[in-house]
């Protein structure tokens, strides 16, 4: 038997390709974007797809969130000042729209975004 065999080389090459893959992965696409729903001390993840969600039933807050493939916004809320509704779309990494009376917020998170660690506002 001759070492390494053709199969060995194929296996090794596949392993190498798998290892190398994350290094060349495109970090700027929406793939690593997450949409978080924060209610008081709890954090939920909402899917980034075209839909309108009524949060009343599942989460008990009087709010409606519209989500898209890479952004989201609060379209209805019982907050008196409507600050979260007026805020509009959250789209950038770290961007957040907060409804203080309901202790609720939606936020875009980018897991592998390395450049910025926080935003002062």
């Amino acid at each position: 038997m001759k070492y390494p065999t053709k199969t060995d080389i194929v296996v090794i090459l596949i392993l190498l390709a798998v290892c190398l893959f994350p290094l060349f992965e495109d970090k700027t696409t929406g793939k690593d974007k997450k949409l978080l729903l924060l209610i008081d001390k709890n954090v939920y993840e909402l899917p980034l797809k075209k839909q309108t969600l009524n949060l009343k039933q599942q989460y008990g807050v009087n709010m409606i969130v519209e989500t898209d493939t890479n952004r989201a916004r609060i379209t209805k809320s019982d907050c008196p000042e409507q600050i979260c509704v007026r805020y509009g779309w959250v789209e950038e990494c770290g961007e957040i729209s907060v409804c203080v009376p309901n202790k609720t917020a939606i936020q875009i998170k980018c897991e592998e975004k390395k450049e910025i660690d926080g935003i002062s506002q």
Partner: peptide, 30 residues
């Protein structure tokens, strides 16, 4: 092989961020 495992391992930052509501705002701790 090991070298690349280590390299790709570095990709996960080793930090954890938690967000929650407190003090009238959203608090984020990393």
């Amino acid at each position: 092989f090991l070298f690349f495992i280590i390299l790709t391992g570095c990709k996960s930052s080793g930090y954890e961020t938690r967000s929650f509501y407190s003090m009238g705002t959203i608090v984020e701790i990393t």
